[in-house]
């Protein structure tokens, strides 16, 4: 389900869910589970953890929904909870995503010019590897760069919305996104080169 929903309509759904409507709580889950799953997956660097984290996030949302005083702020509140769940889990496990890549064996493909990767098993492997490298690189970023970058670059959120989620100033969000881009560019340099196939 699309997350494109008017603020007023969202607030009404939230209020009904606060009053105990399971149907409306499910509606909130349907609206945001995909975004939250992908957000926590990118922050944690693991699709398996992302399932648990999505579950934990919505369970917490259900328990705490009564405490949300501004139903229109639901989206930011939800992402804040998801972000906290990720950082709590990472702190508990003291883990960063691990991927081992042998640079000498990497063939340089132009991932950007060819859409036929699904038909080429070798490309599929490299694409999977690239995803792992992206996960690792994101995982290696400072948390303050990682969350704002993921929200801006993948979730296409406005910087104003991001400030509401991470609770930092607009200037800080802007410069942290820029720094994350610099770090990613360095880490993914070889994949950014033109194909040498």
């Amino acid at each position: 389900m699309s997350t494109e929903i008017g603020q007023q309509e969202l607030a009404e759904i939230v209020v009904r869910a606060q009053r105990g409507s399971s149907e409306d709580f499910y509606r909130l889950y349907s609206l945001y589970s995909r975004s939250i799953f992908n957000f926590v997956r990118r922050l944690s660097g693991s699709a398996n953890d992302a399932e648990d984290l999505t579950q934990d996030t919505f369970f917490k949302v259900h328990s705490e929904l009564g405490k949300l005083r501004e139903p229109k702020q639901f989206k930011y509140w939800l992402f804040r909870i998801a972000r906290n769940e990720v950082y709590q889990k990472l702190r508990r496990s003291q883990r960063t995503p691990e991927v081992s890549i042998d640079d000498d064996e990497v063939l340089y493909y132009d991932f950007l010019s060819d859409d036929s990767e699904d038909q080429d098993p070798e490309r599929q492997v490299l694409s999977l590897e690239l995803r792992q490298v992206i996960d690792k690189t994101l995982g290696g970023l400072k948390p303050k760069y990682r969350d704002v970058f993921v929200l801006a670059a993948f979730h296409k959120m406005s910087y104003e919305d991001i400030t509401r989620i991470v609770g930092r100033s607009l200037l800080s969000v802007k410069t942290d996104i820029y720094r994350a881009r610099l770090a990613l560019k360095e880490a993914l340099k070889k994949y950014l080169e033109k194909g040498k196939r």
Partner: peptide, 17 residues
Amino acid sequence: LLLQKADPDREPSARIW
């Protein structure tokens, strides 16, 4: 562009709900 192509959004498992 690389990030968009290499890491598109995925569907969460139906069992989560």
